[in-house]
Simulated assay, not measured.
Amino acid sequence: MNPTVQAFFDKATNTISYLVSDPATRAAAIIDPVLDYDSETGRTSTASADAVLKAARAQGLEVVWLLETHAHADHLSGSDWLRGQTGAPIGIGSRIVETQACFAERFGIETPPVTVFDRLFADGDRFRLGGLEVEVLHTPGHTPACVSYRIGDAVFVGDTLFMPDFGTARADFPGGDATTLYRSIQRLLSLPPETRVFVGHDYLPKGGRGDFRWETTIGAEREENVHVGGGATEADFTAMRGARDATLPPPKLLEPALKANIRAGALD
């Protein structure tokens, strides 16, 4: 059986959160929820996370997992707030400890305890979402801790891959690496071509389409992705990624996002 997937687009950060459910048991997971943040006032709001939760409750879904693909640098996570509302555990890749240590040192703060997350997933771990099995794929490169979640015919790739006409994630954050990212992407591209791919962000390509999108397929990524499609080599990708990343500014919410997200979204 395959999951039902509902997407929630946050225009302020171009982030897509997902409500993923088992049609048979009504068990659900929320992947990469957003906590709204106004950088000018420093105030937060739970409007985006609450919208996902209200949708789940309206459909009679029980949220049993809160899943993070990585510690995001461009938005604050809504997972900690949702844990308080639902009691659901928060899961993330086990190498989050590296991200915690790196950014705690960078920001001059105490490294948070890894127990702020309820479950640390290793590559190949499997767990249940109702009657569905979730497989964890370690897909580092954007960050050391990035994971993708494969559920039935769907895979949730976070920032590793974007829509085919936009390409791939940057690899210049501390602990990021373009060669590692390429190899992670190749692992994803080895999945069956009909596999549905759900990306973590969408940005409109210059001169391209006029609407935001977040669902594609492995087959489309293999053939059409502007960075890795059509058999792009590791050397070509690494050179392209390095040159491109050198032109990118830091994410606007880098410091507040990572200070919160290495704590599972908990605020000071």
Rank of each mutant, 00 (worst) to 15 (best):
L35Q: 03
D236W: 10
A73R: 10
P250S: 08
E98C: 08
Q59M: 10
R43I: 15
G130Y: 03
F173T: 03
L82M: 08
L204G: 07
N225W: 04
I16K: 00
K11Q: 13
D22P: 09
A88P: 11
L82W: 01
A169C: 11
I16A: 12
M1L: 04
W214C: 03
S148H: 00
F162G: 12
F162M: 14
I185E: 02
A260Y: 07
R263Y: 05
Q6I: 01
R196G: 06
V64C: 12
L204S: 06
R26P: 05
R213W: 00
P174F: 14
S77V: 06
V63M: 06
R106V: 06
A47Q: 13
P3F: 01
E110R: 14
T238P: 01
L161M: 15
I92V: 11
H227D: 05
G242C: 05
C146H: 09
G219C: 06
R106L: 14
V155G: 00
P256T: 12
D165G: 07
L191H: 04
L82K: 04
R150M: 07
V64E: 11
C102E: 11
D38Y: 10
Q100R: 13
V116I: 11
L253P: 01
E221H: 05
R83T: 06
G175S: 02
E62T: 07
L188Y: 12
I31G: 01
A104S: 15
C102L: 14
V5Q: 03
A266D: 06
G130P: 10
V155W: 08
T217M: 14
G231W: 04
I151Y: 04
L132G: 09
L66Y: 09
T15Q: 14
T180W: 03
A220H: 13
P193Y: 04
P113T: 05
F162P: 04
L189T: 08
R43S: 13
K259I: 13
D74E: 08
E221L: 15
R183M: 00
M163Q: 14
